[in-house]
Design a protein around this nucleic acid. Structure first.
Lengths: 219, 219
DNA sequence: TAGATTGTTAATCGATTAACAATC
DNA sequence: TAGATTGTTAATCGATTAACAATC
């Protein structure tokens, strides 16, 4: 059996995106170098962890001085696939969809929406933030004529799986799903669920826990 | 030293929110019971994991028949703090903020936006989805007169920390942060970062990895 | 040089999974 | 009863952290 190149652990990837945002700010403020200790402090991580994380992207620091800000920023950006521009299409131009189209993804993540697709005739054939919104039925044709790296799902739960199927059927290999439902895809496609509920669940559960700590403190 | 009630692991909480959404659908379709095997299949988890997860909320199943859908749904909802209605305020009524105000959080998560706050005069003193948008300066007064459980941050990165400070200063203990910056708070407040970048990072990294697998397969 | 910071190795901690007895 | 499914215990796996030698 063929051994696959090992996948980077998800927790590390998530932290890398945090370092990246921070480093981008430092870079703009012309900061030259930074130590793992300082980075850790800003994000409330442990210094060792920062070093281990950065190591994964192939970076080496210098004892005494730390890491070169510009170097680290670029290395993480490349590692996360944010240095090559990728093209995305959106399905579902409702409230959330419009907000996504209006967001400046390109600057920081190299992501560019080239089109949106809507099942409701009323919302099709307009421009949002200069991005054309087409009728969904036009997608197969569009997909043949353009390089589409990522399909973003922002339709209601009921329609999410259908959209995912259409994306896969048209050769799209990356799916960013904002609908509250888990979508299934055949092997080969990559799906990432950006579920608000997940993050809300952590917040509300922590609040329950902290309430319990106050009311029934353990001896 | 006082021993704190142990926190539920974040991965479990995240999965619980997935079960919950699924179970809500089953409940509406009048499904009576479900086995860990079936649940696992629908979400692409392992059956043992499902049982372990559900156990944490205090649930017991029946051999042969599995779990009662309504029971599980309710138990998870209580565990996640979604059964008690909680009141939220939003800071930043831009694109994302408006989308958040228009979302039906209440049905599924028991979360209700009671007001929004805006620093830009132009966007203040209007209603969005029937929720009043006030000038930010009014918040301290508002907070004294209303029960505010959660503060949601949807302002630009530069303003995020200031908003977090204002929330904490006015006694808000739960913060849901949609700005791309990590915000710091004193102990006692709970912050959850709903960073789009995190989820995008996982997607784009996986795409890089799958590309590498194809191009440089290991023997 | 002395001292701060790095990278590495080993130990610890926590989460997932395998194996299986208990139950309806 | 036989068989499907549960809960539990132990083993495995993976991620974090501690300790420390190497380096500028």
């Amino acid at each position: 059996m063929k051994k696959m190149a090992s996948k980077a652990p998800a927790p590390v990837i998530r932290r890398l995106s945090n370092y990246h945002h921070l480093l981008l700010g430092l870079k703009h403020r012309q900061v030259q170098s930074i130590s793992s200790t300082t980075l850790a402090e800003m994000l409330e991580y442990k210094p060792v962890q920062v070093r281990k994380d950065l190591q994964l992207t192939g970076l080496v620091g210098k004892p005494r001085t730390g890491f070169q800000v510009a170097e680290v920023e670029e290395s993480i950006r490349r590692f996360l696939g944010w240095s090559l521009d990728s093209q995305a299409v959106l399905f579902g131009a409702g409230n959330l969809g419009s907000a996504l189209l209006n967001h400046p993804w390109r600057e920081e993540y190299g992501l560019r929406f080239i089109a949106a697709f809507e099942s409701s005739e009323a919302r099709a054939n307009i421009l949002i933030n200069n991005i054309p919104v087409f009728a969904s039925s036009y997608f197969p044709t569009f997909a043949k004529e353009h390089q589409v790296d990522i399909g973003v799902i922002a339709v209601p739960a009921e329609a999410a799986q259908d959209v995912a199927d259409v994306l896969v059927a048209n050769g799209i290999r990356g799916i960013w799903n904002f609908s509250p439902t888990h979508v299934k895809t055949p092997l080969g496609a990559t799906v990432e669920d950006a579920l608000f509920a997940r993050s809300l669940a952590i917040l509300t559960r922590r609040l329950v826990e902290s309430r319990n700590d106050v009311e029934h403190p353990e001896p």
